[in-house]
Each structure stands twice: as C-alpha cells, then as structure tokens.
Amino acid sequence: MPPPGTQLQINVTGDCLTTQQAYNTADDGTLTTDMFSATPDPRTTCPIDIAIVRTTTFRVNSSFEGGLASGLRSAIGSVEYIGNN
C-alpha cells in the first residue's frame, strides 16, 4: 500500500499533434515541454490543450484488507500551435 502523497501530471493534446504528451513532474510550479510533434504540413494550426492534474493519495480505512483512495483536481489551459507561420 503506497503512503499518502501528491503527484502532478501534465497532458498535452491537440488535433494537429501526432503524439499526445504526458509529463509526470514534481509539483514545483514550472515545466518546459519538449518540442511538439505535429502533422508534416507546417501550415497546419490547431489549439493545444494543456491539462494539469494534481492527485493526492491516501490510505483507506485499515478495516479493509487494503486499497487506495485518491483525490484529483485539474486545470485546463490552451495555446495555439502555428507550425511555421
């Protein structure tokens, strides 16, 4: 049974991106992504969504054989991918 703790994951998605990117990172307030992989056409543009998910885990009541309890909160932001424009 893992001890209580907090994790942070950042998910980057966009219609013109060829890969979704997920970063499990320290909850220290900043992250710089890799360059994005996008469709070959450099004229393609699309909005990119950035979701930050903070998860805190807790022990379940010890009356159970075991288990995991978690609380999640998220925030979503957006930027524009403009290729070579």
């Binding site: 992504t33 360059m35 930050i52 998910v53 903070r54 609380g71 925030a75 932001g77 403009i82």
Partner: peptide
C-alpha cells in the same frame, strides 16, 4: 479523502507555439 488544491495555471509561454518552440507552463 481531501481533494488537493486546484493547480491554477499562472502562465503558458509562448501563447503561439511554432514547430521549433518549447512550451513553458
């Protein structure tokens, strides 16, 4: 279970990403 604090986004830089850019969150 205590829900964690909201991870408020403070900035996304730059707001227009080119193919060679990296995004700082």
């Amino acid at each position: 279970i205590v829900a964690p604090a909201n991870p408020t986004i403070l900035s996304l830089t730059p707001d227009k990403i080119r193919v060679t850019d990296r995004l700082t969150i």
